[in-house]
């Protein structure tokens, strides 16, 4: 029982991180109907920026942790946004309206480029840091097992919830959100009605990148070690989460992220840690075959 609760806590934490990345996939897929293959790498870059800013703040002697974390959060969101914007501008915008495989190939190229760029600029070795947020609460206790909920886990889940609420508000209530939804439905009509479609799409990438950067920061703080290759696996799993939740749906992405996080954690805990990636990929395959619209996605009627 205690072991189960502990895994539940770990799974929800991991799921929050996947969910944050998945939102980026789902928003971009919703608006331009392509898999932003480089999104996982933007997440990785976000993690690096968070790591670097933490180190700098540390060397500057900033010891008040909450303030440091807030600064790191803002810096990584901003910097990663520039990456998200540039990726869209360079690799996708020129290909808008081109034949359907072109943007995907360009996205794969972008992903390879970003990975190697970071590898060259930052070195191929793993980057470990000391834990920044320590301690936690003991939730349950038995002679053989102690269930702890660390402050870091609380921080991750809370941040995710706040950001989710904020972005949901943004999409549902603001002019930007309306423009986004309009572009999702019919890009040409939206532009005829005076919506700057290019700008809206850019902003979608920026928002996705910012959320991915938050996920990256959480990843650094939670695992304490990153390298240039973390983007690929995390990206594929987050995409799985987006598909599982129903691509194009924000709550779906979050739900899918949670489910993938839980499944992966429980699989590692109860079956085999080696095959945890197989579990995630198998779910992806099964969902797409049996539930192609995902859990919260809208069914689509084939237009003939």
């Amino acid at each position: 029982m205690e072991y189960f609760v502990q895994q539940l806590i770990n799974g929800v934490t991991l799921g929050s991180i996947y969910g944050l990345i998945a939102i980026g996939y789902t928003m971009v897929y919703g608006i331009i109907g392509m898999i932003n293959f480089a999104h996982g790498d933007v997440f990785m870059i976000g993690a690096f920026i968070a790591l670097i800013s933490l180190l700098i703040l540390g060397s500057l002697g900033l010891t008040f942790i909450p303030l440091a974390l807030l600064i790191v959060l803002i810096v990584s969101m901003l910097m990663a946004s520039v990456y998200g914007w540039t990726v869209e501008r360079v690799a996708y915008r020129p290909l808008r309206g081109s034949f359907r495989l072109a943007p995907l190939i360009s996205a794969i190229g972008m992903s390879i480029f970003l990975q190697n760029y970071v590898q060259i600029a930052q070195g191929a070795r793993v980057k470990p840091i000391q834990p920044v947020v320590n301690g936690g609460i003991v939730v349950m206790e038995s002679p053989s097992f102690i269930v702890t909920l660390s402050y870091m886990q609380i921080l991750i889940v809370l941040t995710t919830l706040v950001l989710m609420a904020g972005f949901s508000y943004l999409i549902a209530r603001t002019a930007l959100g309306r423009q986004q939804r309009a572009c999702e439905q019919d890009r040409r009509m939206a532009s005829l009605l005076g919506i700057n479609v290019d700008r809206t799409i850019s902003l979608t990438f920026v928002m996705g990148a910012a959320l991915a950067a938050v996920a990256g920061m959480m990843f650094v703080l939670y695992y304490g070690v990153i390298d240039f290759f973390i983007g690929f696996l995390a990206g594929v799993k987050a995409f799985t989460a987006a598909v599982l939740g129903g691509i194009g749906s924000m709550p779906g992405a979050m739900l899918g992220g949670l489910l993938i996080g839980l499944i992966e954690t429980f699989w590692s805990a109860y079956f085999s840690i080696e095959y945890k990636d197989v579990a995630a990929f198998s779910i992806l395959v099964l969902v797409l075959i049996f539930l192609p619209t995902g859990l919260l996605g809208k069914p689509e009627i084939e237009k003939v």
Binding site: P94, S106, I108, G109, I112, Q115, N116
Partner: peptide, 14 residues
């Protein structure tokens, strides 16, 4: 090598 490879993929597609 791989940096140039990825970059070339993007550029040729564009």
């Amino acid at each position: 090598r791989m940096l140039a490879f990825g970059g070339a993929m993007v550029l040729i597609m564009v």
